[in-house]
Design a protein around this nucleic acid. Structure first.
Length: 278
DNA sequence: CCGTAGACTTGGTGCT
DNA sequence: CAGAACCAAGTCTACG
């Protein structure tokens, strides 16, 4: 459920399920995730109330009193919700790594590849969580007003790496391989173009493409490549609308030229040589 | 400081 | 049909 749209969809659907609910019965598997709740954290989390549920970058965040639970889905993380306790499900599914109860709902975090993680963070001073020194790289939110062509142009003037590598570094929150590829195609920018070589006009097109692609993906229920589904187990429809991602050896939907694939920053990149000249 | 390569991990797919 | 080989939504680190 990796990129911004997928996390956003899950977050929105968890709001009515978790808002103002008391959390109990935390359980964790003995397998390591990137980060797992400790026994002590499970203990002190018990009986805390969820005040707010929101997404920041690719993290789902549950705000409690002076503390937060951050959930990252890695590549294959998934949350399922049930009205009844699923003891058999946990026993038979080796990929469930955390569960807890929110009054009338039971939540299960599954992660096949275990690149995801759960983090418990307590407020250590008067500052807001996002002003404090956390080991999380949130980046700027691409759907915020602050994210515009002037901003992206200014911070990219000395960047020598390919634009696609830069997009996936996390400076812009929530963009991964799928939406970097799709946004660059719609902006007509070659993924290999040097970032600093792109002028304000190109950057403006890129900003608009990023906002468009992310918004459309959220509207379509996200991109399901293999694992992703929403909390009701339904796949997203946006993968059907991908113009380039995953379309190896297929033809460009605009100009009918054969699409190219190339490794950039150790990720497969899909693009059209003819439509993405800059 | 900047940019790249490797590491972590399990499973699906298409080939020999 | 078993098995090797390659690929995958993401980041964090180590090194030049």
């Amino acid at each position: 459920m990796p990129e911004l749209p997928e996390v956003e969809i899950v977050t929105r659907s968890l709001i009515p399920i978790l808002k103002n609910k008391i959390l109990t019965n935390f359980w964790t598997s003995d397998k390591n995730l990137r980060s797992q709740l400790s026994d002590y954290e499970c203990f002190i989390l018990t009986n805390k109330k969820v005040k707010r549920i929101f997404r920041q970058a690719k993290y789902l965040i549950l705000e409690l009193d002076n503390s937060w639970i951050l959930i990252h889905f890695g590549m294959t993380g998934k949350i399922t919700v049930s009205k009844v306790e699923q003891k058999v499900f946990i026993a038979n599914n080796k990929h469930v790594h955390c569960s807890f109860q929110a009054e009338d709902n039971f939540l299960y975090f599954q992660d096949i590849r275990r690149f995801g993680g759960l983090y418990f963070v307590e407020r250590s001073d008067e500052k807001n969580l996002f002003d404090s020194q956390l080991p999380f790289n949130f980046g700027i939110e691409p759907l915020s007003e602050k994210f515009n062509e002037n901003y992206i142009y200014l911070i990219s003037r000395k960047v020598n790496m390919p634009i696609k590598a830069w997009l996936m570094k996390g400076i812009i929150a929530g963009i991964g391989n799928i939406y970097a590829s799709e946004a660059l195609f719609r902006a007509g920018i070659n993924p290999n173009a040097k970032t600093k070589s792109l002028g304000i006009i190109r950057m403006s097109r890129l900003v608009n493409s990023i906002k468009f692609v992310l918004t459309e993906a959220i509207r379509s229920g996200g991109s399901t490549i293999n694992n992703y589904s929403n909390i009701d187990g339904e796949a997203g429809n946006y993968a059907k609308k991908h113009m380039v991602y995953g379309r190896k050896d297929k033809f460009c939907l605009i100009c009918n030229y054969m699409l190219d694939t190339k490794y950039i920053a150790q990720r497969s990149s899909f693009y059209c040589k003819k439509c993405q000249k800059f």
